[in-house]
Design a protein around this nucleic acid. Structure first.
Lengths: 136, 136
DNA sequence: ACCAGAGTGAGAATCGTTATCATGACTCCT
DNA sequence: AGGAGTCATGATAACGATTCTCACTCTGGT
């Protein structure tokens, strides 16, 4: 068994920064956000904390097209997917009712085991579209 | 209009290395593979070529969990997904008949536009499972 | 209050990837 | 064949994200 994590100022700060928004944020964004807010936390610690939270299933992680990791504290712990705004990171949690079974079936059909699936939707949310229009 | 790319030894070599296998390979793996085979090609060129091929839709790109890009020359050019072996990179092209419509619908329901989706399945193929058993 | 050990942070180190830039190869024109 | 102009190459530097190192600090149990 792995002993529970100690609660420190920094971990609390990171956790809280995640509570606040429902948007996916990169480690660096969170680091900056904390700095600006006054709770300066070392970048390394932000990374460590996020990793720990992710391992514990407390935050969801996904990758942008260029490989950067984004983190978000989701309302539910159960398996789900996301519809993410590619410009602001705002996300909606969604289910893929049919996807789950489909994935497992396709996997075994081809003799693959331990199937996992990555299903994420990317789009531009209404708000970001509005501000893009305004700019043009 | 963008003029066609010049066909050079190195581009041919990279393209051919991709033809050979149906496995997803990283740029670095391909670079090594070419070196070993005798067709030494600069790493930068491998990256450039892969990027060009990807832009042209001639190779598919996906990202591992840790953000590394993997490339593969697929049989079809039309939109499709993959079932990839997480240990050897072997891949099977699959369709997600229902997924497409579902993605678009979910997107518009939440007011998102320009919906794209990422759907990839990861598993362990029969061959890799066999060699894993042998090792244990 | 004390102490063992987990946690922290500044900076170095890694790793994948992209940018630079001098050099080389290819095309087209004559 | 002889250039001029262009695109491609490759060694290397630069980059950005992430991880590692290590001396120092704090937490949590006593």
């Amino acid at each position: 068994m792995n002993q529970p994590l100690r609660m420190t100022k920094q971990r609390a700060a990171v956790a809280e920064a995640l509570q606040v928004s429902d948007e996916f944020r990169s480690a660096q964004q969170l680091h900056e956000l904390l700095r600006d807010r006054g709770d300066a936390v070392g970048l390394a610690t932000v990374y460590r904390t996020l990793q720990a939270l992710a391992d514990g299933g407390d935050v969801d992680v996904l990758r942008t097209d260029d490989g950067e990791a984004l983190y978000r504290r989701c309302a539910r712990t159960e398996h789900h997917h996301h519809l993410v705004c590619r410009s602001c990171g705002r996300a909606v949690e969604i289910d893929g009712p049919t996807v789950e079974a489909w994935a497992a079936e396709v996997g075994s059909t081809h003799g693959f085991a331990d199937i996992e699936h990555t299903v994420e939707l990317w789009g531009t949310c209404a708000a970001c579209r509005a501000s893009a229009d305004r700019a043009s």
